[in-house]
C-alpha cells in the first residue's frame, strides 16, 4: 500500500515535470505537434487518393478506412502518451543509465515509464478529435456498447503496442543496438494496421491475429462496429470486442520476457 502511494506520488510528479517542460519549450512543442498532424495527414491523404481512384478495397470504402485508421490512431496515441519511454530502453542500456534504475527501490519498468521528458497529451487529444469525426463520417452507430468498448479497445490496443515495444526494447539487453529493428517494427505496425487485414494471405492473417496481434488494434473491432461481413479468418464478429483481453495477455507475455531479460542483464561495461 505504501509502495503504491509512493508510485502514485512519483507518477504525479512525472506529469507535472512533463507539463512544465512542454511549457518551457513552447516552440519545440508546436513543431512536434505539427509533425504529428502532418504524419497522420499524409497517411490519410494517401488513403484518400487511392480510394478516390478505386472506390473500395475488399469491400472497404474510404469512409470505412477512415474509421479503421481512427481506431489505430487512438490506441497508438494512448501508447505514445503513457508508454513512450519504453522506446528509449536501448538508449538507457547503452548509455549505462539503466544501472541506476536497478538500484532504486521502485519497480524498474515503472521507473522507466515515469522518466520525465517532453510528453504532453497533444497526440491523444488529436486522436480523440479525429476519432469522433471519423465515427460520424463513417456512420457507425454510437450506442452503449460502442461507448463502453471503444475506450477499452483503445487501451487494449495500446497494450499490444506497448507489448511489442517492450519485447523489442528487451532485446537491447543482448544486442545493445536495436534502432533499426525498432524503426522497422514501428513501420510494419503502421503498414499492417492501415488496410483491412483480409487482403493479406492466410498465413499473414494468422500471424497478425495470433503472433503479433496488430489485427486486434483496429481491424477486428472496426469490422465489428462497421458490420463488415467478411472476416479475415471467418471468426465470429464479436472477436472484435476481445481486444482488451488480447492486450492484457500480450503485454503479460512481453512483461515475462522483460523480466527474463532483466535477470540476465549484465550491463555494457560502464
Amino acid at each position: 500500500m505504501k509502495r503504491l502511494k509512493a508510485m502514485a506520488r512519483a507518477y504525479r510528479e512525472y506529469w507535472r515535470i512533463n507539463v512544465l517542460t512542454t511549457l518551457e519549450y513552447r516552440e519545440n512543442f508546436l513543431m512536434w505537434f505539427a509533425f504529428t498532424i502532418v504524419y497522420h495527414g499524409t497517411a490519410l491523404g494517401a488513403l484518400w487518393v487511392v480510394l478516390t481512384a478505386f472506390p473500395s478495397m475488399n469491400g472497404w470504402t474510404f469512409r470505412d478506412m477512415a474509421f479503421l485508421y481512427g481506431l489505430w490512431m487512438l490506441a497508438h496515441a494512448v501508447n505514445n502518451t503513457f508508454f513512450s519511454e519504453i522506446g528509449n530502453i536501448p538508449d538507457h542500456v547503452h548509455e549505462g543509465e539503466f544501472d541506476r534504475l536497478l538500484v532504486r527501490p521502485l519497480d524498474t519498468l515503472f521507473q522507466l515509464i515515469a522518466t520525465p521528458g517532453q510528453t504532453f497529451p497533444d497526440e491523444l487529444i488529436l486522436a480523440v478529435s479525429y476519432f469522433a469525426a471519423a465515427t460520424w463520417y463513417s456512420g457507425v452507430h454510437v450506442g452503449v456498447l460502442f461507448l463502453i468498448f471503444v475506450p477499452l479497445i483503445a487501451l487494449g490496443g495500446a497494450l499490444i503496442d506497448l507489448g511489442i515495444n517492450l519485447i523489442v526494447g528487451t532485446l537491447a539487453f543482448w544486442f545493445v543496438r536495436v534502432d533499426a529493428l525498432q524503426w522497422i517494427v514501428a513501420q510494419l505496425e503502421q503498414e499492417f494496421t492501415r488496410y483491412p487485414v483480409s487482403i493479406y494471405s492466410r498465413s499473414v492473417r494468422l500471424l497478425l491475429t495470433f503472433a503479433f496481434p496488430f489485427a486486434f488494434m483496429n481491424y477486428y473491432p472496426a469490422a465489428f462496429f462497421l458490420n463488415k461481413p467478411e472476416n479475415a479468418l471467418a471468426l465470429p464478429p464479436a472477436v472484435g470486442l476481445l481486444t482488451p483481453l488480447i492486450g492484457l495477455a500480450f503485454v503479460s507475455v512481453a512483461y515475462a520476457f522483460w523480466r527474463f531479460g532483466l535477470n540476465r542483464y549484465q550491463g555494457v561495461g560502464h
Binding site: V50, F54, M57, N58, G59, Y195, I199
Partner: peptide
C-alpha cells in the same frame, strides 16, 4: 494492396 485494389 495493389492487387486488392485492382481485383474489385
Amino acid at each position: 494492396v495493389w492487387v486488392a485494389l485492382y481485383a474489385h
